[in-house]
Design a protein around this nucleic acid. Sequence first.
DNA 1: ATTATAATCAACAATGTGTTGATTAACAAA
DNA 2: TTTGTTAATCAACACATTGTTGATTATAAT
Lengths: 201, 201
Amino acid sequence: MSNKRKKLDPRVVRTRQMLRNALIELIGEKGYDSISVQDITQRATLNRATFYLHYRDKEDLLNQSIKDILTELVKGMKKSRLIDENITDSNGNVIRPLSDLVYVFEHVAQHEQFYKVMLGNKGQQRFLFRLLDVFVDVLNERLTHSMSNDIRPAIPKEILIQYAASAYLGVIAWWLRNDLPYTPEYMATQLTRLRVQHIQT
Amino acid sequence: MSNKRKKLDPRVVRTRQMLRNALIELIGEKGYDSISVQDITQRATLNRATFYLHYRDKEDLLNQSIKDILTELVKGMKKSRLIDENITDSNGNVIRPLSDLVYVFEHVAQHEQFYKVMLGNKGQQRFLFRLLDVFVDVLNERLTHSMSNDIRPAIPKEILIQYAASAYLGVIAWWLRNDLPYTPEYMATQLTRLRVQHIQT
DNA sequence: ATTATAATCAACAATGTGTTGATTAACAAA
DNA sequence: TTTGTTAATCAACACATTGTTGATTATAAT
């Protein structure tokens, strides 16, 4: 996560981890709004004053957590994308999923609780939109790389990207709501299939 | 909106409307979380006690507003959908948009401030998901009506629906963020085009 | 004009906030 | 193991927000 010039007191690490876990738990239970700093420290079995030693308020705590998770996601996707080719066979059928999409689902599965809460009914919309931005960026890169055969009537690129990025997000949220009923590979394959129908790889 | 057995004191109507407007304004300004009942009544130039005469808390106030808007949306979409045929020409090209989609964009434009706030960064995720459900329901109806030519490899219907519904939602949110750069008809046409690429009308 | 009810106002206990200063506990390095 | 450093605890603080109350004023309907 965050390297602050080599030194990091284990007590600090422990405390922050406990606060974050407590926050996520509580958001899932009663929603972000009705949580007090008291609630968080109580759940984390820490003194309330300790909280203010690390974070300005619960807002601050949440933002830190979001930042860490998304940094990991972006890094992982970039790494996965290096090994991407041969998505379709000679008939244009999808034979394997885009590897960065697979990574996304694996990453989400690994942080299931966090994503379940944040992409659920009681989550924070800020996170949802920041995640959307990650997908938008990725799609933007892909689309600028491959603007070849334009057969279909022109749909503004921006709309196309928003369409697809939101669709990804929605499918992921559905996957979480249903307790990950399919494997990451399977999910990524479905999205890849839907993708090639309106975006030329 | 809501007809409560004919009688509705004009003072009540006025008060509730002022409270709702104040809430939406404030959500857009500083986010739902940091709003106090005091803030709301102050903005609405009403006494704080008056608030509790109408709503249990700010949660309650928000839920009422959401309910009213979505009821109007669903009703309008149902009405529009009665006049739906001849979407594509003989070549399969989209010549006009699905009429209920046009209505959606018109409705959103009419309540621009509300949707801008609720589908923006500081909005409430609850609303987003309830709106998503509206789209899911519509798509579900459509898909059960027309399960004909299955050429492509099977993608679970539920995934397909979540994909499309989320995509709609995302495009609408984008449209709002960019201050409605296209007409409702144009937007609906784009979505209709994207639709026919993976869902057979 | 009279009756009903909505809105105002001041006051209330209860809860949460953010901060402080003093104390105890845990860490890292010699 | 001892020692200096820093993290965590605890009690206490002034302050803001909450939800409710009872009495009063203002507005609507007949």
